[in-house]
Design a protein around this nucleic acid. Structure first.
Length: 831
RNA sequence: GCCGAAGUGGCGGAACUGGCAGACGCGCACGACUCAAAAUCGUGUACCUUGUGUAUGUGGGUUCGAUUCCCACCUUCGGCACCA
C-alpha cells in the first residue's frame, strides 16, 4: 500500500498526489518480486555471450559487516551493468562454512559447530538479501555440506593419484591457540604469528600432508592472458621468490659430496668456509668425534631457539665447527665446514658457501669466528678493497680479481661466464631456486573436510575408494580441554578395515585446510551438489572461466595463489581446461572506522549495515559505499557523508515524480543542453563502469541530476525531451540503486523490469558541444577565455585570441614568439 | 635492507592522451520558508601580502605548458626478509 502524503499544486494545475519515498518498503517489495519472477536465475543460453561474475564468498561468522557490503554491492552493480549490456550473467553466492571459529564457538558456548554454522548462514543469507543483489540463490553452495566436501575429498584423491599430494614428517608451524598446524602462508609478520588469532607459532615435528604447489612455481609467476592488478602480481611473485644462480658440488674429506646453491658464482674463489643448516642430513657424517659434543649441543640449542621463536632481528651469529673440510672445486682449496642456524634447511640445499668479503651474513660470521676473508670482486669506482681493513662486506657486482683463470672478467658478464666455466668442468650447473614451499594442508581440527586416507599397518597409505566418498564427519563429538582433535578422540570413527587387504586399519584424523574448499568453489556454483562429477560439463563449457573476480587483497598469497595452482594442476590431470580460472581480478580496499582505525568491537567503531539499511534504505547504502572512496583504496567511514547520497536519491524521487509547470515557450537551448548532457553522462558512466570507477559513476549521475533540475526549473517537465532524459537517467542509475529505479520505472508506466532493459545507446552527435570555451594562456599562464564554435580552425583561434583586450595589454606591442593551439582546448602565446 | 601502493582545500575525493587544478559530495557561512526548529530550496566556500601573486609531500629536470613524464629525497601504508 502506498501512502500518499505530499500534496502538490503547481500554478493552475490540478492538485496531484505524489507517493512519499519509503525505501525499506519499496526495497522489500522489489526483492520479493525479483525472487518470485526468478529474475536472477542464470541459465545457459548459447545465443548470448556469457559473463561469470564472482565475488569472494563470505565466512559465516554470524553477521554481515559493512566490509561485506563494500566488497559485494559494487560487484553486483557491475554484474547488473553487464546484464543490461546484453550478457547472460551468472552472479552466485555461497558460504565458506568450514573453519575454526565454529569449533571455538562449540567449546565456548556448548553448541555444535554444524548448528552454529547453519544458524549463522540462515541469518546472513537474509542479510545478504537486503542488499538487493542479483544473486542466483539456486546456485548457492555451502562448503561444509557432505555433498560439497565429497568433491573436495575427490580432488584430494586426484592430486594424490597424480603425485601432487604427499605426506612428510618434518618440523612445521603450530599455533598453540588454534591447536593446529598452519600453512606457511598463514604465518605472518616479524614475530611469525598465526594469521587468525595472532598467537606466535611454534615448531613441531609432525607427519603432515602437502600439495606440490612448488611444481608450478614458475608457471604461477606468469600472468599472461589475464588481467590481474599489478599489486597482486607483485605480491605473488615476491612470495614465490625466484632466484637465478648455480648449484655447485663440493667434495668433502670425510663424507658425501656437498651441494650448495649460490646466486653469486662469480664469488666462488672467495669462499673461505662452508656452513650447513643444523638439520642438514650430512651433519652427522661430517662431524668429527672430537667435535661431536659441541655440535650436538649446538643443534639442540638451535631447535630450542626456533621453539621460543627467534628473538631479535639483529641476531648475533652463532655456529660451531664440525672438524671436517670441503674442497673448493674451483681452486682445490681446503675449507672448514661449520654449522649455523642462519642457514635454513628449507631453502636451496640447506648449505651455503661462505664468501665473507661479498656477503654481509658471511662477513659477520667470519669476523666472529676469526675465519679468513678474501676479496675477489672489485666494483668499478670503489677504492681498492682490503680484506684486513674492511668493516662490512661489499656485495656489489664488479670485475673479478684473485680468481685464477677468471680474473679480470667484467662484472656484467661474470656470473654467466663462471656458470659456463663450471658446466664445462661438470662441477656446477645453472639453476633456479624458489622461495615458495609446498602447501601444508593438514589441520588437527574437527570442523573441516576429512582427508580421505586410511593408514593400514600392512599396506601403508591407502586412499579411500571413490565409491565410499564422502568420508563424513561424525556428529557425536566432544572437545577435550587438551585441545586435541575430537576426530582422534572419537571412539569408533577412525577404526575401519583397509580397503586393500581388509585388515583393521585407521582413518587419517586430520582434516583439510579450508583453503582447499575455496580453491574450487567457483566450480561448485556451476552445478551445486551434482552427484556424478564435481560439475556438469556443459555448465563448465559455457560459464568458465570466471570473467570478473572481486575480493580483498589479503588473499593475494593464500586463496588467490592456491586457486590458480589448483586450476593448473587439474588442467594437467585433464579435468579442467585453460590455464587460469579467473580472467580479471579487481580488489576493493578497506572501510575503516570513523576514527581512521580498523573496525573492531573492542574499539567500538563498527558500522552496522542493518541499521543503515533500516534508516536510509539499501540503495542509499550502496550508493554511498560506491561514492565515498576509490573502491580499490577504501577510506574511513563518515556518517554525515551518507546524508549526501541520501539527499541525491530522494532528489531523484522528487525530480521525477513531483510535477512542475510546463512552460509553453521554452528556450530550445534548454532541450539541446539537456540532451547533450544526458548523452555525455551515458559516455562517462559507461566508461567508468568498464574501469570499476564507481565513485565517478555516482558523481556524474549527481551532476546530471543537477542539470535535470535546471531544465525542470526552466519548464521542461513533462515534455517528450524530459521524459526521454528521465528514461535514460534511470537506466544509467539502475545498477547502482536497483530498487528506486525499478519503482520509478514502474510508476512511469513501463512494463517489465528496468534491469532487463537495454543499456542506453550512445549518441555521439547529441553529446557534442557546439560552443567551446578555449583557454587563452600567455607563457603557460591563464590570461583569458574565448568562446568559439567547436572545431574552429587554428587561424580563427589565433585571430580571436589576439583581439582579446587582456592579451593585447599583456603583449604591450611585442610580437609573440610562438603560438601553440590545441584544437578545442587552448591557445598558448609564447612571448 | 628489498619490492609495491599512496601523498591534491577543514574532510572524502575529481581532473580521460601533458592542456582552465579542486568536478561531485560532506562540512561550514549566509539567505528563503517557519512562531521556532528539523527537513527542503537558494547563494557562497583553496590560500595570501589582492596581483602580471601563491598552491597538487620536498628539491631538481624535460616542455610553450607538468597533479600527470624523468631524477633524487621525505612521509604513510602493505608485503617480504639471516632466502645464500
Amino acid at each position: 500500500m502506498v501512502r500518499y502524503l505530499k500534496k502538490h499544486s503547481g500554478g493552475n494545475m490540478q492538485q496531484k498526489i505524489v507517493p512519499i519515498y519509503e525505501p525499506v518498503k519499496i526495497e522489500k517489495k522489489w526483492q520479493k518480486t525479483w525472487e518470485d519472477l526468478n529474475q536472477h536465475k542464470a541459465v545457459i543460453d548459447p545465443d548470448k555471450p556469457k559473463h561469470y561474475a564472482l565475488t569472494m564468498l563470505p565466512y559465516p561468522s554470524g553477521n554481515l559487516h559493512i566490509g561485506h557490503w563494500y566488497a559485494i554491492t559494487p560487484s553486483d552493480a557491475h554484474a547488473r551493468f553487464m546484464r543490461m549490456n546484453g550478457y547472460n550473467v551468472m552472479f552466485p553466492m555461497g558460504f565458506d562454512a568450514f573453519g575454526l571459529p565454529a569449533e571455538n564457538a562449540a567449546i565456548k558456548n556448548n553448541i555444535h559447530p554444524k548448528q552454529w554454522t547453519f544458524q549463522n548462514i540462515s541469518h546472513m543469507r537474509e542479510q545478504l538479501k537486503t542488499m538487493g543483489c542479483m544473486f542466483d540463490w539456486d546456485r548457492e553452495i555451502i562448503s561444509s555440506e557432505p555433498d560439497y566436501y565429497h568433491w573436495t575429498q575427490w580432488f584430494f584423491l586426484k592430486l594424490y593419484e597424480n603425485g601432487l599430494a604427499y605426506q612428510k614428517f618434518s618440523p612445521v608451524d603450530w599455533c598453540p591457540t588454534c591447536n593446529t598446524t598452519l600453512a606457511r602462508e598463514q604465518v605472518w609478520g616479524d614475530d611469525r604469528h598465526c594469521e587468525r588469532c595472532e598467537t606466535p607459532v611454534i615448531k613441531k615435528d609432525l607427519n603432515q600432508w602437502y600439495f606440490r604447489i612448488t611444481n608450478y612455481a614458475d608457471e604461477l609467476r606468469s600472468f599472461d592472458g589475464i588481467d590481474w592488478p599489478e599489486r597482486v602480481q607483485t605480491l605473488q611473485n615476491n612470495w614465490i621468490g625466484k632466484s637465478f644462480g648455480a648449484l655447485v658440488t663440493y667434495k668433502t674429506e670425510y663424507g658425501d659430496p656437498l651441494e650448495v646453491f649460490t646466486t653469486r658464482p662469480d664469488t666462488l674463489w672467495g669462499v673461505t668456509f662452508m656452513v650447513l643448516a643444523p638439520e642438514h642430513p650430512l651433519v652427522a657424517k661430517l662431524t668429527r668425534s672430537e667435535n661431536s659434543e659441541a655440535v650436538q649441543k649446538y643443534i639442540d640449542q638451535a631447535k630450542f631457539h626456533t621453539d621460543i621463536q627467534r628473538e631479535s632481528l639483529d641476531r648475533e651469529k652463532t655456529g660451531v665447527f664440525t672438524g671436517s673440510y670441503a674442497i673448493n672445486p674451483v681452486n682445490e682449496e681446503r675449507i672448514p665446514i661449520w654449522i649455523a642456524d642462519y642457514v635454513l634447511m628449507g631453502y636451496g640445499t640447506g648449505a651455503v658457501m661462505g664468501v665473507p668479503a661479498h656477503d654481509q651474513r658471511d662477513f659477520e660470521f667470519a669476523r666472529k669466528f676469526g675465519l679468513k676473508i678474501r676479496v675477489v670482486i672489485q666494483p668499478e669506482g670503489t677504492e681498492l678493497l682490503d680484506a684486513d681493513t674492511m668493516t662490512a662486506s661489499v656485495p656489489a657486482i664488479g670485475a673479478m680479481v684473485n680468481s685464477g683463470d677468471m680474473t679480470g672478467t667484467p662484472g656484467d658478464e661474470a656470473i654467466d661466464k663462471v656458470i659456463d666455466w663450471l658446466e664445462e668442468r661438470q662441477i656446477g650447473k645453472r639453476t633456479t631456486t624458489y622461495r615458495l614451499r609446498d602447501w601444508l594442508i593438514s589441520r588437527q581440527r574437527y570442523w573441516g573436510a576429512p582427508i580421505p586416507i586410511i593408514h593400514c599397518p600392512k599396506c601403508g597409505i591407502v586412499p579411500v575408494p571413490e565409491s565410499e566418498l564422502p568420508v563424513r564427519l561424525p556428529d557425536d563429538v566432544e572437545w577435550k580441554p587438551t585441545g586435541e582433535s575430537p576426530l582422534r578422540l572419537h571412539p569408533t570413527w577412525k577404526h575401519v578395515n583397509c580397503p586393500k587387504c581388509g585388515e583393521p586399519a585407521e582413518r587419517e584424523t586430520d582434516t583439510m585446510d579450508t583453503f582447499m574448499c575455496s580453491s574450487w568453489y567457483h566450480l561448485g556454483y556451476l552445478s551445486p551438489y551434482y552427484p556424478n562429477w564435481p560439475f556438469k560439463q556443459e555448465e563448465y563449457d559455457y560459464w568458465m572461466p570466471v570473467d570478473i573476480y572481486t575480493g580483498g587483497i589479503e588473499h593475494a598469497t593464500m586463496h588467490l595463489i592456491y586457486t590458480r595452482f589448483f586450476h593448473k594442476a587439474f588442467r594437467d590431470i585433464g579435468i579442467l581446461k585453460g590455464n587460469e580460472p579467473m580472467l580479471m581480478l579487481r580488489n576493493q580496499g578497506t572501510v575503516l572506522g570513523e576514527d581512521n582505525e580498523k573496525m573492531s568491537k573492542s574499539r567500538g567503531n563498527v558500522v552496522d549495515p542493518d541499521k543503515l539499511v533500516n534508516s536510509y534504505g539499501a540503495d542509499t547504502v550502496r550508493a554511498y559505499l560506491m561514492f565515498f572512496a576509490r573502491w580499490e583504496l577504501g577510506a574511513p567511514w563518515n556518517s554525515s557523508g551518507i546524508e549526501g547520497s541520501s539527499r541525491w536519491i530522494r532528489r531523484i524521487w522528487s525530480t521525477v515524480l513531483e510535477p512542475a509547470e510546463t512552460k509553453k515557450n521554452i528556450d530550445p537551448e534548454v532541450f539541446k543542453v539537456l540532451k547533450r548532457r544526458i548523452y555525455q553522462t551515458v559516455a562517462s558512466v559507461t566508461r567508468d563502469f568498464q574501469h570499476f570507477q564507481f565513485n565517478t559513476i555516482v558523481s556524474s549521475l549527481m551532476e546530471m541530476l543537477n542539470e535535470m533540475i535546471k531544465a525542470k526549473n526552466a519548464g521542461a517537465y513533462g515534455t517528450t525531451e524530459w521524459n526521454e532524459a528521465v528514461d535514460i537517467y534511470l537506466r544509467l542509475a539502475a545498477p547502482i540503486i536497483p530498487h528506486i529505479t525499478e519503482e520509478l520505472y514502474a510508476l512511469l508506466g513501463n512494463s517489465g523490469s528496468i534491469h532487463l532493459a537495454q543499456w542506453p545507446e550512445m549518441d555521439e552527435e547529441a553529446a557534442k558541444e557546439e560552443l567551446i570555451t578555449l583557454v587563452v594562456q600567455i607563457n603557460g599562464k591563464l590570461r583569458g577565455r574565448l568562446v568559439l564554435p567547436a572545431g574552429s580552425s587554428e587561424e580563427v583561434v589565433k585571430e580571436e585570441a589576439m583581439k582579446l583586450e587582456s592579451v593585447s595589454a599583456m603583449l604591450d606591442g611585442k610580437e609573440p614568439k610562438k603560438l601553440i593551439v590545441v584544437p578545442n582546448k587552448l591557445i598558448n602565446i609564447v612571448v
